[in-house]
Simulated assay, not measured.
Amino acid sequence: MRVIRTDKWLLDAYDQPLELCEKLKHLFDEDVSAGEIHQHLIVHGMYREPLKNGDELIKELQKRRIWQIVQQEAKELQKEWNGPVIPIFILPADTNNRKLRHEQNGKSGLSFPDKLFLFVSEMNTEKEIRALLTHEYNHICRLSKYSKKEAEYTLLDTVILEGLAENAVRERFGDQYTAQWTAYYSNTQLERICMNLILPNRNTPKSGRKHAQLLYGFGFFPKMAGYCAGYHLVKNYMSKENVPSQDLLGVKSEQIIEKTDEA
């Protein structure tokens, strides 16, 4: 695993995020600009505008050895899950984003099949950052082991993807380090969400508008409906089959639902 020393990049060009994104261009399609990369990362949690104390933040994260901690945790996860070796980039989160602060404690992540981004802030503890890495790297392992192209994912595939990742966090760090959304609904409410919303729309393609609506709970749908349903479905499967989340990385999404329906 390679944790890129973005702290050195940031100390040189924290106030020039486009310059930082120029360093990432070789990881994306040739026709993608640094500006487009920056905008995409912003959507997923990267800082939008430099803060006055930006250098102090980077030095504080260095003092706390965040790059080394992520390197060690990533190495352990890669070995435990037999996952791919990918580059990991740590960048400051957008602490001016109220939703990010309140719902995710000022942290976020973004996974691609061949790279991973962690967006963190001074408010995050070491365990929170390790839990964030666990969630995001679990996505990469699922993408590499599940015999289906990501472009062909349906709502069910995405829901199970998210459910697997957060159950991996629960296994490694306990309920207290899982995302807030895992406690939004009771089991009865989750069963209704699964049966009335997620399963009837399980084949909705990733490109479809309804996919995002159900996954995040936009409009009149329950908040984070797909995420919560995925966590519930995977957790139930793990309990009934007495298996760890690691054993499910290559299991078909439909199989998890079939086992759930048998109960």
Rank of each mutant, 00 (worst) to 15 (best):
V3P: 09
R5I: 10
K8I: 14
L10I: 15
Y14C: 03
C21A: 08
E22P: 06
L27G: 12
F28C: 06
F28H: 08
V32T: 08
A34R: 01
G35R: 07
G35Q: 11
H38V: 06
Q39L: 09
P50R: 11
G54R: 07
E56G: 04
L61V: 11
K63E: 15
R64G: 06
R64W: 07
R65M: 13
W67M: 09
Q68Y: 14
E76Y: 11
Q78E: 07
I86F: 00
F89A: 06
F89E: 15
F89S: 07
I90G: 01
P92C: 04
N96F: 14
R98G: 08
L100S: 10
R101V: 09
E103H: 11
N105K: 14
G106T: 07
G109V: 05
F112W: 01
P113F: 01
L116R: 02
F119C: 06
M123G: 05
M123Q: 15
K127T: 09
I129L: 15
L133G: 08
T134V: 11
T134G: 09
T134Y: 06
E136R: 06
N138H: 07
N138P: 04
K148P: 00
E152V: 01
E152F: 07
E152P: 04
T154N: 05
D157E: 05
V159P: 05
I160F: 00
I160Q: 00
L161M: 07
L161D: 03
L164F: 01
L164D: 05
L164Q: 03
N167V: 06
A168E: 14
E171A: 09
R172I: 08
G174V: 14
D175Q: 15
D175V: 15
Q176Y: 06
W181K: 08
T182C: 07
Y184W: 10
Y184H: 07
Y185F: 09
Q189L: 09
L190Y: 04
E191L: 09
I193A: 12
N196A: 12
L197V: 14
P200Y: 00
P200Q: 03
R202F: 02
T204A: 09
T204P: 08
G208Q: 03
R209K: 15
H211N: 07
Q213M: 14
L214P: 05
L215Q: 10
G217Y: 04
G217V: 13
K223P: 00
M224K: 13
G226P: 05
G226K: 01
G226N: 00
C228L: 04
A229G: 09
A229E: 03
A229W: 05
V234Q: 02
Y237M: 10
S239L: 15
N242P: 00
N242Y: 11
N242C: 08
P244V: 13
P244H: 10
S245F: 04
Q246K: 10
V251P: 00
S253P: 10
I256L: 12
I257P: 02
K259V: 12
T260P: 02
T260C: 11
D261H: 11
